[in-house]
């Protein structure tokens, strides 16, 4: 073209720099930093549990029943003389797995339901009323019901919690997808003859990942708390395998004379939930689409 001379390369950051800017913004966000730090420490400790402890969370020692916190048992011991520190470390593995797996499962289910609702407008009314009905039900009651039906296994806890959080996820995905589907690039794809599959998977889904990712962190935190609640009610992961919830549940009969049995797993739960929430806050602030990465 005559005066449409080939323009110089735009002086803007390339892809890798965009990532770097995103990472730098995240790192500069104080609550993200603190949250990520907490979560990282907990995960590392769970992974390194055999190195940090005796490696036998279920080893009983009648001699040490109800040993209070000391140099040997830094978190004390329980009614079977099991080391609480070791149990909390191994418990992190189960609790974190339950949190992670149920958040992921809920995200997948929510994405499916939410996208269906946003795309097939005729189904929207029905789908969202069902989701509303499920939301009106306390999540924990729903989880109790599902868990009771499936029997006491770690997997049934995960399925129960995931199902309980699907409606929230679905709402978030639907809201974001409804915005994206009205954008010009979706129309551009339609003008080119693109079908529903291409539009959903190429254009809409990738652009609703940010809010989904943020809510995954929050559901992760809820799920860890809910696992504790289920265990407390006796329908958590089956003993003797330790989860933070069932360590507390087992300690509840001795809460006055052996407070440490409940205190330390309780602290671990609070810390993990706090860490995930802080991390999620940071992600939400940084991934906010209103903060454009330019210049």
């Amino acid at each position: 073209m005559t005066d449409a001379t080939t323009l110089p390369a735009a002086a803007m950051p390339p892809r890798s720099a965009r990532r770097r800017i995103l990472m730098r913004r995240l790192w500069r966000h104080r609550s993200f930093r603190v949250g990520a730090g907490i979560v990282a420490v907990i995960v590392l400790m769970a992974v390194a549990a055999p190195l940090l402890s005796g490696g036998q969370p279920n080893a009983m020692s009648l001699r040490n029943r109800f040993a209070p916190p000391s140099a040997d048992f830094i978190f004390g011991a329980d009614n079977f003389g099991r080391d609480i520190f070791t149990r909390v470390l191994y418990g992190a593995r189960i609790s974190l797995w339950i949190g992670f797996a149920s958040a992921m499962l809920a995200a997948a289910g929510g994405a499916l339901v939410g996208m269906a609702s946003a795309w097939f407008r005729k189904l929207d009314g029905i789908i969202m009323r069902i989701m509303d009905a499920l939301l009106a039900f306390p999540a924990i009651l729903l989880a109790i019901g599902i868990n009771a039906a499936l029997g006491p296994q770690v997997s049934s806890v995960i399925i129960a919690l995931a199902s309980a959080y699907v409606p929230r996820m679905a709402r978030i995905v639907r809201a974001a997808a409804l915005v994206v589907r009205e954008l010009d690039y979706v129309d551009a794809a339609r003008v080119s003859g693109a079908g529903a599959g291409r539009i959903i998977f190429r254009h809409i889904l990738p652009n609703v990942m940010a809010p989904l990712l943020v809510s995954v962190t929050f559901v992760f935190a809820y799920a860890i708390l809910a696992e504790a609640a289920l265990s407390f009610l006796g329908i958590g992961p089956p003993p003797p395998h330790p989860s933070w919830g069932n360590i507390i549940a087992e300690g509840r009969d001795y809460s006055v004379e052996a407070w440490w049995i409940m205190l330390f797993p309780g602290l671990a739960i609070s810390l993990a939930a706090l860490g995930m929430n802080l991390l999620g806050d940071g992600l939400r602030d940084v991934l906010d689409p209103r903060l454009k990465i330019e210049a």
Binding site: D3, A4, T5, L7, A11, M12, A295
Partner: peptide, 12 residues
Amino acid sequence: YAIPGRIPDPGR
């Protein structure tokens, strides 16, 4: 008539 090129970004 078209002015070629574009406004430089602030900072550049």
